[in-house]
């Protein structure tokens, strides 16, 4: 579904990721782990077309999307949930969802406002509230719901657990697991391994902008030294 080859990029001349290569099969999910500053956010932003890649290639469903504008990448079937959530704070919850509305690649419409509210009853209760008044967890649910309204086949999630209480993270894990079983592929960047493993089997660990480890969670559990070296202090 997604093939990333030797992706290199960064901001304003500053290198942030170097030679990143990984791929994702159909309906597969992958976790991108690493300490902050490792290049997870840059990788996702570059995939989404928010940063121009310096070199390397990105293929989605067999077509090259390298260097395309973010709206075209969205229309190709990729949904994006950014790290800071970036919900439209002056809009109501429902309006945020409407702003994300678009048919999927083949004109399919699987997601409606009602279905998103079914997945996240927490925000359904606040449908008319201004999004700026939502709590951290509600904002994250809204950002995910808004991305789902575009009927994506692949969802990019950038550190969804950041700043959230454990029970809320748990709740998000349930929802993401449900999306997985629905057949939506997920690429999740996380520092919270517990959440990441509920969503994905395979993982890539980045360290200072490069791929430092590639494998799956059972492999990682069997080798705590790697985890401490790449993720701990």
């Amino acid at each position: 579904m997604l093939d990333v080859k030797s992706l290199t990029g960064g901001y304003a001349g500053a290198l942030a990721i170097e030679d990143i290569t990984f791929s994702l099969g159909a309906s597969e999910s992958l976790a991108l782990l690493g300490r902050n500053g490792a290049g997870k956010t840059t990788t996702l932003k570059t995939l989404m077309g928010l940063l121009a890649p310096w070199s390397g290639g990105i293929e989605f469903k067999g077509a090259a999307i390298t260097g395309q504008s973010s709206d075209r990448i969205a229309h190709a079937g990729i949904g994006y949930v950014p790290e800071e959530r970036r919900i439209f704070e002056s809009l109501s919850v429902t309006e945020n969802l409407v702003a994300g509305e678009k048919p999927g690649r083949s004109g399919r419409i699987d997601w409606t406002v009602e279905r998103v509210f079914g997945l996240f009853p927490e925000i359904a209760r606040r449908s008319a509230a201004q999004a700026g008044t939502l709590s951290g967890g509600e904002r994250q649910m809204l950002a995910i719901g808004r991305a789902l309204m575009g009927n994506p086949e692949l969802l990019l999630l950038d550190e969804p657990s950041e700043g959230l209480a454990p029970v809320v993270v748990n709740r998000l894990g349930d929802a993401l697991a449900a999306l997985r079983s629905d057949g939506i592929a997920i690429l999740i960047s996380e520092q919270n391994r517990n959440l990441a493993r509920r969503v994905a089997e395979n993982l890539v660990i980045l360290e200072t902008g490069r791929v430092a480890y590639r494998g799956n969670f059972s492999g990682l559990d069997g080798d705590p030294a790697i985890a401490t070296r790449l993720l701990g202090v």
Binding site: L33, P166, E190
Partner: peptide, 10 residues
């Protein structure tokens, strides 16, 4: 840093 939540579940 190791991404374990306080509850330590899962």
């Amino acid at each position: 840093y190791l991404g374990e939540t306080e509850s330590g579940d899962a």
